[in-house]
Design a binder for these strands. Structure first.
Lengths: 213, 213
DNA sequence: GACGGGCCTAAGCGCTTGCTCACTCTCCGT
DNA sequence: ACGGAGAGTGAGCAAGCGCTTAGGCCCGTC
């Protein structure tokens, strides 16, 4: 399920279709550097060095260092939005769709945790207009998750007293995977996705009504 | 419940006992600046300016900019650890103790979200030995939460197939409050704490066994 | 075979950074 | 009265920053 049309297999980052080759290498280098040290602690010399070129070469492909961050942030946010929208529009019960959304969203954050870290934790460094653009995508993501939860409440399948707050909590839980996930760690992206899907179903009270005393 | 011995009432930050006065103002200024812009984007001139003094005055009270971050990070981590340890050692059922831990931990992250943001998201900027020291405190926090969950599992009160993973998820959920919480927003720290305590009890299956088909 | 565009580099410009230095002011014990 | 410690300042240094410039190599096209 959820097979990628291209860039399949062990493809590390979703930057396979950037041309020319040097620009792609720059984005990859920037993702690694931004994720490891943060945007402000990363120098253009560092990015260019990792991409195997001189500092000046960066400015042939990108106008500024911030544009590089913008590119990463924009593509990453759009990718994350696609994932939850696909789950929202899929067939099945609200519980199935919510589990699908969480599983895929978490898996993406774990598998691409370098990119996701930049996407989720460096957006404060964006220029104001770029920041606004990215915030709009985030709101859409929030809306997609909320609509699944609302569907479940309307159908009587979920027990959620505070839909807005619970939506924030669910998204927050998933996003934070990018912060702590370690590729060399104990769990695989698939395992974390499955665990989190189950936890979120419990959070929304989707696994049957409780036996109240 | 949970009354603070000093610095009570609307005290904004837990820095009331730092002397001399100028050093306290510097810490407060640094917390605000680091939280808003990040450690690396904050200049020593900015910190000194917010504290109402010249750039050179900073170095009378702190050896480096990093030492300022270390001070904030260390005190913040110890405060957070105290909170969960107090809940772990309190009386009551595992569910009551877990709810108490989450409520207090979340409330602290919301109420002091500026400090918490620095504590949780700027630790990568610490010097290596300071970083190691702080990581040790984090491990203790993780251990405290895990031991409450283990108690609940042993007592048959919780239904948690993956204790380690669920502990990470619970802590992650609580920590991330510092990222999104906005003092001018819809919810108060108390409301978020109550909401999250309920969500976590559901995550560990503490609210009664489900009616399985 | 001259040419122009795409891609790249060495050198470096103007500026900001974390931090230091020489010095002043205020306060307090003797 | 006065010396010394604590607390603060204005000026500025060395290093590093983002980014620019001038020029060179390589290529397909006329």
């Amino acid at each position: 399920m959820d097979a990628e049309p291209k860039n399949s297999g062990g493809g590390i980052e979703p930057w396979g279709d950037i041309t020319p080759d040097a620009a792609r290498r720059l984005v990859g280098a920037a993702v690694h550097a931004f994720a490891e040290r943060g945007y402000h602690a990363t120098t253009t010399r560092d990015i260019a060095g990792r991409a195997g070129m001189s500092p000046a070469a960066l400015y042939i492909h990108y106008k500024t260092k911030e544009e590089l961050l913008y590119q990463i942030s924009k593509v990453g946010h759009e990718r994350a939005l696609e994932i939850v929208e696909r789950a929202r529009d899929s067939a099945g019960t609200p519980a199935e769709r919510l589990a699908r959304a969480v599983r895929a969203f978490v898996r993406w954050h774990a598998e691409h945790h370098m990119t996701a870290r930049v996407v989720q934790y460096e957006l404060g460094a964006l220029a104001e207009e770029h920041h606004a653009e990215v915030i709009a995508v985030r709101k859409a993501t929030d809306g997609a998750v909320r609509s699944i939860i609302e569907d479940g409440v309307k159908a009587g399948a979920f027990d959620v007293p505070d839909v807005r707050g619970t939506t924030v909590a669910v998204l927050s839980l998933c996003i934070d995977v990018a912060r702590w996930f370690n590729a060399a760690g104990r769990s695989t992206p698939d395992e974390v996705g499955d665990l989190y899907a189950g936890l979120v179903l419990r959070m929304v009270g989707a696994d049957g009504p409780r036996q109240v005393p």
